[in-house]
């Protein structure tokens, strides 16, 4: 069953990644946008584990652990930035953040 899982998982990973890109493009709420980025990181994790499984390399697991840590750090800082933004603007609608224009 290894082979079919391998292919399907890679496709699933690319699918999740594409959904993440679409989310970043379509969503208007900053937090939903950032959730889409998290989805993309999850897709990358899935790809790592799949490759590790396929090739019998255990390193993939380690890489995933580190990426999760980075995702957590990013989420912490990101949500703090959202809170700061909310204090200044009272909303998190991305379309209306247009003070900076040339």
């Amino acid at each position: 069953m290894g082979e079919s899982i391998f292919e399907a998982n890679l496709i699933l990973s690319l699918f999740l990644f594409t959904v993440g890109i679409l989310g970043v493009m379509w969503k208007r709420n900053a937090i939903s946008l950032f959730m889409s980025v998290e989805l993309m990181l999850n897709a990358a994790n899935l790809a790592f584990v799949t490759f590790a499984f396929q090739h019998g390399i255990i390193d993939g697991g380690i890489l995933v652990l580190f990426i999760m840590t980075v995702a957590a750090a990013e989420a912490g800082v990101g949500l703090a930035i959202f809170i700061a933004l909310f204090r200044v603007r009272r909303h998190l609608r991305v379309d209306e953040h247009d003070m900076l224009h040339g």
């Binding site: 990644f17 993440g20 900053a30 993309m40 980075v70 990013e74 930035i81 700061a84 900076l100």
Partner: peptide, 17 residues
């Protein structure tokens, strides 16, 4: 703050890539 927000979102997007 808005510049920070934009930099953060696109930076996180880029690091996912």
């Amino acid at each position: 703050t808005e510049a920070c927000f934009k930099y953060f979102i696109l930076g996180a997007f880029a690091s996912a890539f």
